[in-house]
Write a protein that binds this DNA or RNA. Structure first.
Lengths: 358, 358
DNA sequence: GGAGCCTACTTATCCGTTTCACCTTCCTCC
DNA sequence: GGAGGAAGGTGAAACGGATAAGTAGGCTCC
């Protein structure tokens, strides 16, 4: 009989109640650690639940007003760029670390554009499939922000802080790291430092470009920004264009690791030597940056950490309605083999170029 | 009043029923396209549902015996290798393509080891959180297979076919592609062709090693296999070791793209020229293979396609109990810039080495 | 012209959990 | 010695949708 119950039917709190000789309500209180039940009875019930191998039916739990027990993440970049952006996998790993420790699920969806992304939010929320969402790649005048606020869907934006309204947000101090990189290159003696940016609609792209322009201006250096669609081919193409110029930059800062690796490949293909002929810096360090030759100097951010913090902020929002708006530590410049003094730089110039000289 | 209903409370089928002047049951039949309701009434109900912006509450639907409306995927590789394996992102993109077109969610979980992975399956199934799972990286004597069969959890293994019991499975014909690669290298005149394999516990690793050994034997060439943990550092290290040998291989086949990129970096670091001094082949093509210099010759599989097929097989299993066991088309060798004749190869040797000569 | 059978519904029950309102006991306190 | 209150429960009603069983009404058919 007991075996039958175990094998054929799911174990429910009714089974536990029967066995413990108490009511379903009592079992529920016991299992959820709520008051209204004596410690002795609670332990007895917990023991029986364990013996019977009981797990809460998530649907029933969700239906009776509680949580869905899941958070959502929509990735809206085209599938082709998704695959090689290790950023997302690292982010997901970080998010999972936090969620799984609290037995909250992560529901993923890959879509083509922002419209589809917003439709997914509407559907998820209406279906009560998720308790909240993590939103990546915030943009200028992002329609998702308004949509989410209107829905009342708990959300944490990974990115910002500008343009994210009053929603919870976790961002990285990109501006600070950009300043570090540009100053570092200038200290090496570089004057023509170009920036190969990602999609201009992204807030992160704008923030970095702004910081780049400001720092270049501060150092009285001529800025040069080209944007890409984050595709590797674009990275290679713009690198070839930049380096074919008679006034080619002596240093290039890329907005992603793929762009940088592609740029390194393009430079090699042109017969240039890195870092002798040109210095390259990648944004977001990764295994690939470390194993190509020469290994790429890169800005390393704690992406899993950002994911964890985002997830924690989301749970805090869901559980207690707490709005979090936090900036992470700035990315760290990992100097490796792709940065050196510019060609023809006078010896000793590695100390100069600071403080608006030139 | 209607506004209030819209804003404060969720729209339920009871609201629709009230508005349409029919019973809840009728509405349910109409919305689910089941018989027992006239076409006129059905259309009227559908119209009202649409006007009211109704979405089914997934919890309620799941509770009343129907589906959870979600499939699960557990990734058990250590987070560090996860991040740079574009394989998973491509797979996920493919899975999503199939699932989202049927409005089925994908629930993801990242864990550290097989034990944890199996615990997740138990929990998900007991909680009725998923209707089925996709299982990656099948192993020799994989404990997950038995566990899943015992649970009665619908599952599709991505990999196989050996060792996957009677479960549904979708695999790629790795053996065939290995034969192609080895023969291609032999035709170029290579005799010392080494294989840098991944984790030996994986079925895929074993299948490829077996095919490699068989083909080398068939060609009367001396085999050489080294295994790694799939980490980039291992790829670089074993490459250095192989190439430092007085009887160094003239060609190396890698079991992943990361290993190959790392190997290429290591070769360059040693001052070798690729492909003049050594030829390299990557397994699983990716953007990175294409943008490094020289671009890597690689075996290209349709990974999103495998994900889609796996997802479709899972839905077929869940809906109709259909077991699928399908092999995909074999991977295609993309010859690029890292393969050429071996050093000191006699001119014209590119035709030889076939058919067990030597 | 009534048996038989569709069609187009309605009614009631169930899924498993949470939670609210209520009910006993037993203890305390003046 | 009875009011007041807390502790430790009980019982029933949600939650929103699926579905089996029941029921009118109209049509066919001999």
């Amino acid at each position: 009989m007991t075996q039958k119950t175990n094998l054929l039917r799911r174990v429910t709190i009714a089974d536990i109640a029967l066995r413990a000789g108490v009511s379903k309500g009592a079992v529920s209180y016991a299992l959820n650690g709520r008051p209204g039940i004596s410690e002795v009875t609670r332990q007895r019930i917990l023991k029986i639940a364990d013996d019977l191998g009981w797990y809460p039916n998530s649907a029933a739990r969700a239906l009776s007003g509680a949580r869905a027990g899941a958070c959502g993440l929509v990735l809206a970049r085209p599938a082709r760029t998704l695959a090689f952006e290790t950023f997302f996998m690292e982010l997901i790993a970080g998010i999972e670390m936090e969620l799984s420790s609290r037995s909250v699920g992560l529901t993923l969806q890959v879509v083509h554009d922002l419209e589809a992304e917003m439709a997914v939010y509407r559907r998820w929320w209406a279906e009560r499939r998720v308790d909240g969402v993590l939103v990546v790649d915030p943009r200028l005048d992002d329609p998702r922000i308004e949509q989410i606020e209107k829905l009342g869907l708990p959300a944490v934006i990974i990115g910002g802080p500008e343009g994210t309204g009053n929603l919870s947000a976790v961002w990285s101090d990109d501006a600070g790291a950009v300043v570090d990189v540009v100053r570092y290159l200038a200290r090496l003696g570089h004057q023509r430092i170009a920036r190969v940016a990602g999609v201009p609609e992204f807030l992160s792209t704008e923030a970095r470009t702004e910081a780049y322009l400001a720092t270049m201006a501060e150092l009285s250096l001529p800025p040069r920004v080209v944007t890409t669609d984050f595709m590797a081919e674009s990275g290679a193409r713009v690198t070839r264009q930049l380096l074919a110029d008679p006034l080619a930059p002596t240093a290039i800062i890329y907005d992603s690791e793929v762009l940088a690796v592609a740029g390194l490949g393009a430079a090699h293909e042109m017969g240039l030597s890195v870092p002798r002929d040109v210095s390259l810096v990648a944004w977001d360090d990764s295994t690939y940056c470390q194993v190509v030759h020469p290994p790429l100097t890169a800005v390393k951010r704690d992406i899993p950490g950002m994911g964890s913090h985002g997830a924690r902020a989301l749970l805090a929002l869901i559980d207690d309605g707490v709005i979090t708006r936090t900036g992470e530590a700035r990315g760290q410049l990992m100097t490796r083999g792709t940065t050196a003094r510019p060609p023809h730089a006078p010896v000793g110039s590695s100390r100069g170029a600071g403080g608006g000289s030139v």
